[in-house]
């Protein structure tokens, strides 16, 4: 029962902060609300016994990626006066893709069955040791593929950022 109350509070906070991300006029506030949103999602992970995932989520997303995001937004100095007008084509394209996304979400929601709330049973499957075990045995290939992908991305970034030698 208690976990249900916590879940509803967390869920409400997640949705609220996600909405604020979209509706904030100031991009800095958007970024800060996104950080709050990540925290509530980490809370959901903890509710599902995934401690490791929760803390890694905070370190990677809230601690690193959002810092860089905030960094960029601060340096861009965005405000109303400098906001360029976008062509009509962009607006239509954005509307169509947003509408398609809504369609997909609605279609997938239609076929889901919403059962009664069940508190997740206590399990140790989300502990660091168990996650590591599964990651390095059962899912070794996808794990290694992901790291190759990351290295490719890193090398790409270095190549792009490298100064031309005259």
């Amino acid at each position: 029962m208690n976990s249900q109350i916590i879940f509803f509070i967390l869920a409400a906070l997640s949705i609220m902060s996600a909405l604020f991300v979209v509706f904030s006029k100031n991009p800095i506030y958007s970024v800060i609300w996104l950080i709050v949103c990540f925290f509530t999602i980490a809370g959901h992970y903890i509710m599902l016994n995934a401690q490791f995932l929760a803390i890694v989520h905070i370190i990677v997303y809230a601690g690193a990626i959002m810092v860089l995001m905030l960094f960029t937004v601060m340096l861009l100095n965005l405000n109303k006066a400098t906001e360029p007008h976008k062509p009509l084509l962009y607006k239509v394209a954005a509307m169509v893709s947003g509408g398609l996304m809504l369609l997909v979400l609605l279609a997938s929601m239609r076929s889901t069955e919403l059962g009664p709330y069940a508190a997740p049973a206590y399990s140790e499957s989300g502990f660091v040791q168990n996650v590591g075990m599964v990651l390095f045995t059962e899912f070794l290939l996808p794990f290694e593929m992901t790291s190759v992908l990351f290295i490719a991305a890193m090398i790409g970034a270095v190549v792009l950022a490298k100064k031309e030698i005259h």
Binding site: F52, V56, I59, G63, A64, L70, F71, V128
Partner: peptide, 20 residues
């Protein structure tokens, strides 16, 4: 059981105070 990661996580959040 994730003590060290907790420390790294919280330390990485400290930068927001300075940036904001």
């Amino acid at each position: 059981n994730i003590g060290i990661l907790y420390i790294l996580g919280v330390v990485s959040l400290g930068v927001y105070g300075i940036m904001i």
